[in-house]
């Protein structure tokens, strides 16, 4: 642990200024990921800027969509009646995330930017390209059961661990970002970057960029949606595989489809091939299976995580069936 200074700010501009001007300055929100990383010596900021005082912590409903403040706590968003009714995929993704204690503390902004759970990233006794660029990637030939099967590069196969971002992609959400150059919006789908040869760069945000809110367009609320995750234990664990499904129907015919997967990709992973296959067809058990089969297109296993490929297909299939109200049938 490197000594660092701590500043608390009261408005977004101050937060942006402090972070974009200084060297090694980072935001801290709920601190649930940051503190783990500080304690283990994975991150060593010189200054932490506490943004808990800037507001942006509520959910506001407008005619054309819902705005979730970046500082809103996971628990509050999960329990918000409009989120629960109109965007179950989001409520479900949050509701089963982490534990009640973590959900009371963690913010949605921080959730989107949580770092990978890759075992080597979190243990400073080993090399890791993401933590120390150029030091190597021991996960590729090591313990990688929780790592990604989609989007990996020869330099990094870390899985993006979070759930919320996956659900938000299925809800067409975008982020409000304030930065040194002013305000802009970023589609959640575009927030994270593939590792390529620079796995230490994870998001398209620049130093000083502050997420102030998540915007979910109302149109997504007209679709049926569901978030399904599979994990070793019943709760309090990141997903081995998850699926966020949001479908617009006319009768049983799929008019519009958003399908994304978590736990399996280096970023929250949009499954366009699955979406394309669904649109214009009647969703039944057979189609759910057919679509699920496409979920792992381009996937590659590294030994320990091979099982995520069949698991991903089955997770997507099951999530589609749930949205379509189709019983999975008796096990063979």
């Amino acid at each position: 642990m490197v000594p660092f200074s701590y500043t608390s700010v009261a408005d977004p501009q101050a937060a942006v200024r402090r972070t974009s001007e200084g060297h090694g300055v980072e935001f801290i929100a709920g601190g649930t990921d940051m503190l783990q990383l500080l304690q283990e010596g994975v991150r060593a900021p010189l200054e932490l800027v506490d943004i808990n005082g800037i507001g942006f912590d509520d959910v506001s409903v407008a005619v054309d969509g819902v705005r979730i403040g970046a500082m809103a706590r996971l628990a509050d968003v999960a329990d918000h009646p409009v989120i629960r009714e109109r965007f179950p995929v989001v409520a479900e993704a949050l509701h089963e995330s982490a534990s009640p204690q973590v959900r009371n503390m963690a913010t949605v902004g921080g959730n989107l930017l949580q770092r990978t759970r890759c075992l080597y990233f979190r243990d400073v006794a080993t090399p890791c390209n993401k933590r120390v660029p150029g030091s190597g990637c021991p996960a590729i030939e090591g313990q990688n059961r929780i790592n990604a099967v989609l989007g990996g590069s020869p330099d990094c196969i870390a899985a993006y661990p979070g759930d919320l971002a996956v659900a938000l992609i299925a809800a067409d959400a975008e982020l409000m970002v304030v930065g040194p150059k002013g305000e802009r919006t970023v589609l959640v789908e575009k927030l994270h970057r593939q590792p390529g040869s620079t796995p230490h760069v994870e998001a398209v945000l620049e130093p000083g960029d502050l997420i102030t809110a998540i915007w979910i367009p109302i149109a997504a609320g007209g679709r049926l949606s569901h978030y399904l995750r599979v994990r070793d234990r019943a709760t309090f664990e990141w997903a081995l595989a998850s699926a966020a499904v949001s479908l617009g129907f006319e009768g049983t015919r799929v008019l519009e489809a958003r399908v994304a997967a978590g736990g399996v990709g280096t970023t929250p992973w949009r499954l366009r091939a699955v979406e394309e296959l669904l649109v214009g067809r009647d969703l039944d058990r057979a189609l759910a299976h057919e679509a699920g089969e496409r979920a792992a297109d381009g996937a590659r296993g590294y030994g320990g995580n091979d099982f995520k490929i069949p698991l991903l297909k089955k997770t997507v299939t099951r999530a589609l069936m749930r949205v379509g109200g189709i019983s999975p049938g008796e096990p063979a």
Partner: peptide
Amino acid sequence: AEYVVPVCAD
């Protein structure tokens, strides 16, 4: 977090 033991829900 990564050495997984049963939690109440299990």
